[in-house]
Design a protein around this nucleic acid. Structure first.
Lengths: 251, 251
DNA sequence: TAGGCGAACTTGTTCAAACAAGCTAGGCCC
DNA sequence: GGGCCTAGCTTGTTTGAACAAGTTCGCCTA
């Protein structure tokens, strides 16, 4: 059952997306929304807090909230599953496993997956295409405990995320993403049909279960121009962190 | 005066950073924290919600919260001001204006800055260096109403953000960031001391006042390897949105 | 017309109670 | 040891009251 505040947030989100309120326009006051939705002021506050977290509305003490934008947000699941995302964008998507092998985790992998160095992990190389064009190369390392489930998937499995949920009830709940730019290496270039040295958008990510158990650590490389990441922030909430690299040209 | 919940969040954040709780460890219950901080349970919930939004803790109904990570977050101001960020990282930073000119806004700029095409804007080309190495090229377009204040800044002004605040009380409150990878153009290559065509991490961003008025629209290009962007997300809150590009190789 | 003032409105914070929905750990049984 | 059950604990939701801190707008005066 959807919580009331989530339902109210959903209705307000739709009203914003529909154009009931222009960008820059004011929302009704909390008191008015409480009457309109037959809810308490606290519940309304929770609902608009959800929208604020999505960057759709902004607020100042004493002034009515304003609409900041109309861009549709994405659920965690949609971001996590390339296939789900692409389909919701209306694109034809395919995915293909090129390599898959168990091996011992190196120190970095072990740290990321809360394992000991030398523990068994499953490394998968996967190519994703949109409209027949290769756009994403994923080098994913799965913790050993999930390896059997991954190995049982077909090589052309479209949505690994969904298949793992349906197959073994695996749920992803938390993610950390590191985004930078790298030059295409030899393998990248061959598989993504680009020149060696050309720019790739790299997203390294680790994904974790609701209990806090890391499942996968992945190095994803997008062809430049194929994908853009978008983030909204504010003085109240800044999810984006800039970290210094090693200040030498990347290899 | 800092709100109580913000103070409690700060203390809990420090305890986490200090190692009082390992990654994966449980936090005390809300009831215990309420006693410890002499606050109501509602206030404690607000405090831990702040930490959850930073990706430091995760929660499941009925189970104690767990520590997800120890990475320090950044304030909005720190992310926005390259100089402030670099200094807090302990790096020597310089900034230099290479070009600065008023001109008419094109359609894209006008849309981003809530202006009409043809309205006057100020375009500034700025180079940022860390430890004497050029790492960031900013092409920033300021709305006309803030142009005089920007023009009055010295060419080697380190922190434009701080100077605008001190000079005219300008406050930034909201941001939108588009992150992708592009190939260095001729000017990029010359100014950042890289080969033409080599990868750059591009961050296009628009920044807005508390009243919702856009101030600047900037195309920032980082040398590959100099900076990584980090974002945490969860099923409860996903600030990261993947958008499709135009599926053709970038120029 | 512009500026100042104040009342009314608006959002932000804190507290508390009550209930719902889930987790955890101990005890018991096979 | 493993599975099941349950009491107690824990987080999630909703309501509401009271107060703080800020904004907005109408009115008045120079």
């Amino acid at each position: 059952m959807t919580a009331r505040y989530a339902g109210i947030a959903g209705e307000l989100r739709e009203a914003i997306m529909r154009g009931d309120y222009d960008v820059g326009a004011q929302l009704p006051s909390e008191a008015e929304l409480a009457v309109r939705f037959a809810a308490s002021r606290g519940t309304v506050r929770q609902a608009v807090a959800v929208l604020a977290a999505e960057g759709l509305v902004g607020s100042r003490q004493g002034a009515r909230r304003i609409v900041l934008g109309r861009e549709r947000s994405q659920s965690f699941a949609e971001l996590h599953s390339f296939a789900q995302w692409a389909r919701s964008m209306g694109h034809r998507v395919t995915g293909r496993v090129l390599e898959q092998r168990r091996r011992a985790a190196d120190a970095a992998e072990a740290a990321r997956l809360a394992l000991r160095p030398g523990d068994a992990v499953l490394r998968v190389l996967r190519l994703r295409s949109l409209e027949g064009e290769p756009v994403l190369l994923e080098r994913t390392v799965y913790a050993g405990w999930i390896a059997p489930a991954v190995e049982s998937l077909p090589a052309d499995c479209e949505s690994v995320t969904q298949a793992l949920y349906e197959g073994v009830g695996l749920v992803f709940a938390y993610g950390e993403h590191l985004i930078d730019a790298v030059a295409a290496g030899t393998e990248d270039a061959r598989l993504l049909s680009v020149r060696r040295g050309s720019p790739l958008l790299r997203q390294r990510r680790v994904t974790t279960t609701p209990e806090g158990r890391p499942v996968e650590w992945s190095d994803d490389r997008y062809r430049a121009g194929s994908v853009t990441f978008s983030i909204r922030n504010s003085v109240d909430a800044n999810p984006l962190v800039r970290q210094v690299g090693d200040l030498r040209p990347s290899s």
